[in-house]
Computed example of a mutant assay.
Amino acid sequence: MDVFYSYTYGTAAWLALQAVPLIVSPTVIVTLLSPAVREATTLEVYFSRSLGFTLLALGVLNLLLTGSIPLTSRLTDTSGGVTTDPDDPKAPYAMPSLSVTLAYHAAVAFYCYAMWTQTGVTSFAFGTVFSGVLSAIGLWCVLFASSDGRISRKTGADKRTSGFPFKNSEAHSDKKKAMKKGL
């Protein structure tokens, strides 16, 4: 399982973990957040459950649009791997979904950190850590897992590398060997 799969499944699990208490027991959530013990109003219950269903929908959409759960029964790629390539028929919206969930996790991590420093409540610290880790993994996926490496068939080296500021003598020796074999 690669990092991209881990990120999409981790995002869906974290969103589901946040959604379940909002849907199942909105009265308990409102009681915990309220300074005075009181019964939740109908509007508070509605907003709590709506937020829970929204978090579940975001998690499921993330899994579907990134290609973690294939939408078709026929796959053109036999390797079974998921890429973030826009031409990949299994994951046409992988990069946009990745970008949206990355922004979401970063915003939630920032908000939880601000609330944790203001109130000192431990649950905000947990939210900061979990959302921060997911946003860091998402940023890693955007930076490094968003394209297939351009690997040379002759030398096996990545074609996107350069020799600046140091000369890659090993790659040049492989290139010379391949050229000698071809001549």
Rank of each mutant, 00 (worst) to 15 (best):
L33Q: 15
L33V: 12
S34I: 11
V37W: 00
A40W: 07
A40G: 12
T41V: 00
E44I: 09
E44Q: 05
V45N: 01
F47K: 10
S48W: 01
R49V: 09
L51Y: 06
L64C: 10
T66K: 04
L75V: 09
T76P: 08
T78M: 00
T78P: 05
S79Q: 06
S79A: 08
G80P: 06
T83S: 14
T83D: 06
D85P: 06
D88T: 08
P92L: 02
P96V: 03
S97I: 02
T101R: 05
T101Y: 04
A103N: 11
Y104P: 04
H105C: 08
H105K: 10
A107Q: 12
A107N: 12
F110Q: 06
Y113R: 13
W116C: 05
W116A: 11
T117V: 14
T122S: 14
A125G: 10
F126E: 02
V129I: 11
G132R: 06
V133D: 02
A136K: 07
I137C: 02
G138M: 02
L139D: 01
L143Y: 14
F144W: 05
A145W: 11
S146C: 01
S146E: 00
I151A: 01
S152G: 03
R153T: 04
A157Q: 08
D158F: 03
S162W: 12
S162T: 14
G163S: 13
P165M: 04
F166Q: 09
N168P: 02
A171G: 12
H172D: 15
S173A: 09
S173Y: 08
K175R: 15
M179Q: 09
M179S: 00
